[in-house]
């Protein structure tokens, strides 16, 4: 029968598709191992515990922000504002400390400011219907501006030890910041893969009109992802301020590029509907390895930026080619 034969083909195609997906994640792992091997063989310092821990510490900020970015990108959106929000939230937490507010309150101020920026993005995207790219580009500039305005362009510094411990402290030999990042990844993994909300995020990214007609609260879901991204950027601001024992209005410039690169390297599609926390975690580690490698190999800082850009371009190119192949 015709029907059974087509079913056979479809089963086979399903099998191939699964292998294709596995290949994608396998590719990330292979790239990870290859870069590590290269650095281990060509530099004396790469394999030292100190270097490993410094990679973890250095990538923790990208990681926290990439968690939020993953939610946004799965809905086919993008959040360019995260770097500026990190700076703005950081200086606001710093100012709270300067005003002798307690450490927990200052932390909440940082996260809250981030969440508020997220609310602004969310309202503009859902209620006003403006393209996420444009909205978050505007907020990128506005939040950065606010960070300068509230500090008059000065660095805020001299924080209590309890606050600095969040970003720069250690728990045993592990950096606290890295543990916070791992915690964020774990929670986000649960939310994305095991909850109704997570399924709705994928549905909205996969086909917003079908999702709406299926009764999914599309706007509420979209709003939530931008608020999550903002709040996590706020947390990132607190972590960064703690690590540096100071909050600067120029902090975290270009962070959005690193975070987006990590998410896309991790297999998420800028066309929406696809992505995972495990993939993003791998993507963050690869970005961390590349940055670390560039430092260890004493590559000129000018080249660092160029190479980071090229890595992003490569990841987006692969995504776009995949998309075309699926469309054909």
């Amino acid at each position: 029968m015709a029907v059974e034969e087509t079913d056979k083909v479809e089963k086979r195609r399903g099998g191939l598709a699964t292998i294709g997906n596995a290949l994608n994640e396998l590719t990330i792992v292979i790239a990870f191992v290859a870069i590590s091997l290269y650095l281990a063989l060509t530099t004396p310092t790469f394999l030292t515990t100190a270097n490993m821990l410094s990679i973890l510490l250095a990538t923790s900020l990208i990681g926290i922000v990439a968690v939020g970015q993953t939610f946004v990108i799965i809905t086919a959106g993008i959040d360019l504002s995260v770097g500026s929000v990190v700076a703005f939230a950081g200086v606001m937490a710093g100012l709270a400390l300067e005003a002798h507010w307690s450490v927990p309150v200052a932390v909440l101020v940082g996260i809250g400011i981030g969440a508020l920026c997220g609310v602004f993005n969310a309202v503009a995207v859902t209620v006003l219907g403006i393209t996420p790219f444009i909205v978050t580009l505007a907020v990128l500039a506005m939040a950065r501006g606010l960070a300068f305005i509230v500090t008059s362009g000065n660095t805020v510094f001299g924080f209590p030890e309890a606050f600095d411990g969040i970003g720069g402290g250690n728990w045993g030999i592990f950096p606290v910041a890295a543990l916070i990042t791992l915690g964020a990844f774990f929670l986000a993994w649960i939310v994305l893969s095991r909850t109704v909300f997570g399924a709705q995020v994928y549905a909205v990214g996969g086909n917003p009109e079908a999702a709406r007609l299926a009764g999914i609260p599309v706007n509420r879901t979209l709003a939530a992802v931008y608020i999550i991204s903002g709040a996590l950027a706020g947390l990132g601001g607190v972590v960064l301020a703690g690590r540096l024992d100071s909050a600067q209005p120029i902090a975290a410039q270009g962070l959005e590029l690193n975070a987006i690169a990590a998410v896309v390297i991790g297999g998420a599609s800028l066309f929406g509907g696809k992505g995972s926390m495990l993939g993003t975690l791998l993507g963050v580690l690869i970005i961390g390895l590349i940055n670390n490698g560039l430092t260890l190999k004493n590559v000129q800082p000018f080249w660092v930026q160029f190479i980071q850009g090229a890595v992003i371009f490569g990841a987006v190119l692969i995504d776009s080619l995949n998309q075309k192949r699926r469309g054909a």
Binding site: V196, A203, N207, E209, A210, L213, A214, G215, I216, G273
Partner: peptide, 21 residues
């Protein structure tokens, strides 16, 4: 395709989409 299904989703997830909660 445009309004009915979430194409990247499995058959099962498409069926259960409206009653997930």
């Amino acid at each position: 395709k445009g309004e009915g299904l979430i194409m990247p989703f499995s058959v099962g997830r498409n069926v259960a989409l409206s009653i997930l909660s």
